[in-house]
Design a protein around this nucleic acid. Structure first.
Lengths: 341, 341
DNA sequence: CTGAAAGCGCTTACAG
DNA sequence: CTGAAAGCGCTTACAG
């Protein structure tokens, strides 16, 4: 179907025998324009379904009111919760959002960053792809556009970063296990130096030290991809140890669920013999039996906060001290996998 | 931090003492320009990190290469799979994507449709909000912009629609139960006339009729919101019947999982006493015990197909016969909730 | 081979 | 109170 063009200011002006300027001002309620003129103009505009071409307006003012968002994987539940927060807050403040997925691929990430800049987004929200190493391109773009990082961040990029307080969240999770009387707490974490995994590991170590529990390398297990499958695999390794752990802290819910599945297979009682704690509060954490104790990450709030800081920077471009790291507090949701009434 | 403006054609032209036209042509490899000139221009462009302002280019050519997407709820796993397909296919074809969430709110949906049109998107992909009734605004926009509906669609909107073959998928699911020897198959569906619920219900009825099984209103249950909780609630109602069903077909995985949870509570053996089948292939369907038999909806393919049809329409605006309904085939994933080896 | 000019739709400082 | 003109960054038909 051939599409009609949308109505423009020019068309309205021609039809009313007025100048484009006058029509523009009438629609924007400029005080110079007489009420009578405003009325005729507005009526015709409504009749012809006139809507200003925001593209043209933005083009002139050099502001598009579009924010660019880049995330590694759009279908992670935690990510979509953050996106939800971003979309809501952005809409509330009169901004639109372009979303891209880097698929954890560093060169795609750079390409997307460039395209977004070319599209004239007013600012960029980004969660970094794994193994992001070459920072030049990112730093280069940071010279031109405000940027806020969230969730997967890097302290080598000088911009505002919104994260959850990973270290403390992990600390609380592990201390919870200790308070239940657990003394041999295993951790399932990532091999690579991912920011999040390292922080959670640090919280684990601090909790053990603070409570004078010896650290045992044999029950500190790592994997490339901290998935359900690998959670199961590592748990089977733990079960084959001479001295089994009495609790497992997995740095993702998926891995924790994998752990539970493995424990079921070997008829290990949860939480009596081995308690399990995850991290994320994914939907799955309430589907699995027993329901999983986990860290609730307020994705929604991370998204909203990131947008708030980004817009602040966009609208006050000369505020140099704006750069900081914001840590969003989490809470531990205690469920049956770690606790019996 | 005050941000530097990005390099423009004008700056390059000034620095090289050439005209803007020549610089533009050189960068676009226009045959008229001498190789020597091209070389100097391209070198300076690279040095100054020149990237064309796509906004300005699009503004001139009246094509933005942006697609607008509106979905009811971004955090449904099925939705994010579709979005993934959309993002990938769009990127592959050189389009960017703006995503909005209508939150199942009809007036928000209209507003977003309008804003997207104002932003000059080249076309719109939409999954309708529940209870979408006022179609005027949508039809009005359809006059100006190519649109493709997916998943939640309406045959009252004359545009291409991409759906899964809901009726057949449900038919196959129910027939699978019948083939297992089940004779009293309950259905858990939605009260409102949602397109998807109705189609699945139709498939259910056809499967029973085709296999000469009497239809019993007592085991056809409906609810406003087909959630996990309501799945449990309706299942408890089924268990209180004098003649219990021997199978439950729930039109969503969530409801099916709710059903399984209720059956567990009442120590009903799955699938021997009551088999359960869901619809969606959500992650949860493999987490629940027993693993849920369900309909695999290829969200990725829906997304890709929708983009393909939309771009076809954008790029061939005068093709009137383009309007059609595309039904994507699904497959039934048989798991332990309906089958024992 | 290169340049001057028009134009995409809009806003706004400058005249009148 | 209203209008003519410039300009946002780019492309392209028209001259030369």
């Amino acid at each position: 179907m051939a599409k009609k063009r949308t109505t423009t200011l020019k068309e309205l002006a021609n039809e009313l025998k007025l100048s484009i300027s006058t029509v523009s001002r009438a629609l924007n309620d400029h005080p110079d324009i007489s009420p009578a003129t405003k009325e005729i103009v507005k009526n015709l505009a409504k009749k012809k379904h006139y809507a200003p071409n925001l593209f043209a307006r933005g083009f002139r003012s050099q502001e598009t009111h579009i924010l660019g968002v880049i995330v590694p994987n759009i279908s992670h539940l935690f990510t979509s919760t953050i996106l939800k927060g971003i979309l809501e807050e952005a809409e509330f403040r009169g901004y639109r959002v372009i979303i891209s997925e880097s698929q954890n691929n560093e060169s795609k990430q750079i390409e997307m960053l460039k395209t977004m800049t070319q599209f004239g987004v007013d600012g960029i929200l980004m969660s970094l792809a794994k193994k992001t190493a070459a920072l030049d391109a990112i730093l280069q773009i940071l010279n031109h556009k405000p940027m806020v990082l969230f969730d997967k961040v890097s302290d080598k990029i000088p911009c505002t970063q919104i994260v959850i307080d990973e270290e403390e969240a992990a600390y609380n999770a592990v201390e919870h296990l200790i308070n239940l009387g657990k003394k041999r707490i295993a951790i399932l974490k990532e091999t690579e130096n991912s920011f999040n995994s390292e922080k959670r590991y640090a919280g684990y170590l601090r909790a053990l030290r603070n409570n004078e529990i010896a650290i045992d390398e044999k029950i500190i297990l790592s994997t490339e991809d901290i998935s359900l499958k690998n959670g199961s695999r590592l748990t089977r390794m733990l079960l084959s140890l001479k001295k089994r752990p009495d609790a497992i802290f997995a740095i993702t819910d998926n891995a924790a669920i994998g752990a539970i599945k493995a424990l079921h297979k070997f008829n290990v009682k949860i939480p009596q013999e081995i308690a399990v704690v995850g991290f994320s509060n994914s939907v799955n954490s309430t589907i699995i039996q027993p329901a999983l104790t986990t860290v609730d990450q307020p994705g929604d709030r991370i998204g909203r906060t990131a947008v708030a800081y980004l817009i602040k920077e966009i609208e006050n471009p000369d505020n140099d001290e704006a750069i900081k790291t914001v840590e969003i507090k989490t809470s531990l949701l205690v469920r049956d996998s770690s606790f019996t009434a």
